[in-house]
């Protein structure tokens, strides 16, 4: 079984506990305006020409974005940092794109990871079928579940999809065996108003299994990536909330009983 990936990042220390290796699956059903991994959106390999300079000479080079790899080979790649993972109680992380877009490969990878005693984390937008969400919340050890906005109209406008399925899936994920951390990208003017935050807190109130919330203040990182392959850059105009506002949001969640990480 093969999977299309666009990167493997070793010494990833923001995608779950300890020292981890994160693999990025290619393909995502969402198209968030602030996306900083735009190379993860299209599902297959992308090729484009890029100008590079060496010794004062400009040359055009073909760049290939993404590669297909068998799940077994991928697992071997991820296993390379076992010594660091064991020492740090780390593990492997699967991100994207949306890993559940290549669900069979994801499930196989999680099974292999379990057999080899790795701690596994899946970073998901939550946009997938209920069945798939059920399986992943059984196979993974930790799910980093992204929740962007409770306002469906805004959600649709800025991510390209409705949040209904995502909200349903969060409920499913919280019933599985995996631990769930909620990840909220914070974007000024999109989801950082007191009302927007209150509505999230209210909504989450009944789900007592949810204990950890990661707040990810938006950062402008992706513009050079967009330029590379002529994808329209929609980030102009977005801003991170101010430090003060982030502090207030942190406090709101803490007061509601969550353990909060900033930057995740």
């Amino acid at each position: 079984m093969k999977v299309c990936i666009f990167d493997i990042k070793r010494f990833a220390i923001h995608d779950g506990p300890g020292i981890r290796t994160t693999v990025f699956f290619k393909g995502c059903p969402l198209e968030c305006w602030w996306c900083h991994n735009p190379e993860g959106i299209t599902k297959d390999i992308e090729r484009f020409l890029e100008e590079v300079e060496l010794d004062g000479i400009l040359m055009e080079k073909e760049v290939e974005l993404g590669r297909w790899i068998s799940v077994e080979d991928l697992m071997d790649e991820l296993e390379k940092d076992r010594v660091f993972m064991e020492e740090s109680s780390g593990g492997i992380s699967i991100s994207g794109g949306e890993p559940l877009q290549q669900a069979d490969a994801l499930f196989r990878l999680l099974e292999l990871s379990g057999e080899r005693n790795f701690h596994s984390t899946v970073d998901t937008s939550g946009y997938a079928s209920k069945e798939k969400m059920k399986i992943v919340s059984r196979l993974a050890d930790l799910i980093l579940f992204d929740l962007k906005s409770m306002d469906d109209e805004k959600h649709l406008k800025y991510t390209g999809v409705s949040n209904k399925k995502i909200i349903q899936n969060l409920e499913i994920a919280l019933k599985g065996s995996a631990e769930v951390h909620l990840r909220i990208p914070l974007i000024s003017g999109f989801n950082d108003s007191p009302e927007a935050i209150e509505s999230m807190v209210d909504y989450l109130e009944p789900y007592k299994r949810l204990k950890v919330v990661d707040l990810l203040p938006y950062h402008r990182l992706g513009s050079h990536k967009y330029q590379r392959f002529n994808r329209e850059y929609l980030q102009n105009g977005f801003k991170a909330p101010t430090k003060t506002r982030i502090g207030e949001i942190e406090k709101t969640f803490e007061d509601a009983g969550y353990s909060v990480n900033i930057g995740g």
Binding site: F11, I13, G18, I19, E87, S88, G90
Partner: peptide
């Protein structure tokens, strides 16, 4: 503190090898 801990693990792992 977390970053420091991870570098500590990095050092310990290298020394384990």
């Amino acid at each position: 503190e977390e970053g420091m801990d991870k570098v500590t693990r990095l050092i310990r792992s290298y020394f384990k090898m």
